[in-house]
């Protein structure tokens, strides 16, 4: 078996509910938002799963639940055969070395009062790693395309793209097997973004870790991912190999999403037909019955309201949850 076919992480039936407390008059009401609802997927060794969807789709909550940064309501997160949801705090601490995260905002994720070098070394200190941290930091800076003397500087001396590289160096410090990248290039200008995306590819080739790449930019995900999961209102509506999902989308939402992305080519933009979805994403407090996309879907029938579609394998190889797939 090739190493790339090995599963590193299996998420099964993940659910995350958030409670909303609101005071309405004299009565306290409790409402529940199901941010993630019965989500399952696998991440393979050395591969990238792209997680796409609009705001409120639950993609960030999935990323954080995987790392146990937030506690899932139910479901399993199996990392190298062990279910993280059943682990004690001490056991988790050990596993967390293998799993890291890079956040969207390179300005908020670094302590302005710490040198970049100490920020990068912090995970080593926290995990009690012995040895010369100074050399390790220099090695990590080199790995992300920064100079070793950058270690002495403070975050404000760096541009957005450089700060994101610092964040990546910190995530790499403990040689993780999995990195969750949560909108890691959204805050960067396109000319800078390209360099950071290349860095992710290079690091994966060199070090062999897996990524969960969370983004709303479908073009970037298409470039970097091996598999793609499309989320809508807390559910995965389509999941499969990148080429299948992008070339032959099966779920109407995937189709609409892809057709809404503006492409940098006036001829293509002005000649292609576009599916214009009506309205906005409904509130996750009170999602539609049956298929959650049906209120905006041009194919919706009575069946879609009555019965929730399950993920089923389609002819191009991907799975989609739709009663009327393409």
């Amino acid at each position: 078996m090739k190493s790339q076919d090995q599963v590193l992480l299996s998420v099964r039936n993940l659910v995350k509910n958030f409670e909303l407390r609101a005071n309405s008059g004299l009565r306290k009401t409790k409402r529940i938002v199901q941010a993630v609802s019965d989500v399952s997927f696998d991440v393979h060794v050395g591969q990238t799963l792209g997680l796409v969807g609009e705001s409120g789709s639950g993609k960030t909550t999935v990323g954080r639940s995987v790392l146990q940064l937030i506690q899932p309501t139910s479901g399993e997160v199996i990392f190298e055969g062990q279910d993280l949801t059943k682990m004690s705090f001490e056991q988790l601490r050990e596993v967390r070395r293998q799993m890291q995260i890079v956040f969207q905002d390179p300005f908020a994720s670094l302590d302005p009062k710490m040198t970049v070098g100490s920020s990068i070394a912090e995970p080593l200190v926290v995990q009690g790693v012995q040895g010369n941290h100074h050399d390790k930091v220099a090695e990590l800076l080199d790995l992300v395309g920064l100079a070793s003397d950058h270690a002495k500087r403070f975050p404000h001396e760096f541009s957005g793209g450089q700060r994101q590289r610092v964040g990546i160096a910190r995530a790499l410090a403990l040689d993780p097997k999995l990195i969750v990248l949560d909108e890691p290039v959204s805050a960067l200008d396109v000319s800078i973004q390209a360099g950071v995306v290349n860095l992710f590819s290079d690091l994966q080739k060199r070090l062999g870790m897996s990524y969960i790449f969370i983004a709303h930019d479908l073009s970037v995900v298409r470039h970097i991912a091996d598999q793609v999961a499309v989320m809508y209102l807390g559910k995965i509506v389509e999941i499969g190999d990148k080429d299948a999902v992008y070339r032959r989308p099966s779920h109407p939402y995937t189709k609409a999403l892809l057709s809404a992305v503006p492409l940098p080519d006036p001829k293509v933009e002005r000649s292609r037909s576009r599916i214009m979805l009506e309205g906005d994403v409904p509130s996750p407090v009170n999602p539609p019955t049956g298929c959650r996309f049906r209120t905006r879907c041009w194919k919706a029938t009575d069946l879609c309201a009555a019965e929730e579609p399950q993920l089923e394998i389609r002819s191009s190889g991907q799975q989609s949850a739709c009663h009327h797939p393409e």
């Binding site: 541009s159 793209g161 200008d189 396109v190 000319s191 800078i192 973004q193 390209a194 360099g195 995306v197 290349n198 590819s201 073009s219 970037v220 298409r222 470039h223 992008y246 492409l263 940098p264």
Partner: peptide
Amino acid sequence: RGLLSSLPHEGIERLQPIAGFP
């Protein structure tokens, strides 16, 4: 030209960033 070629598009193996920063 740099801006256009730094964008990801189908079939491209490696993105071409613009070196340096503004």
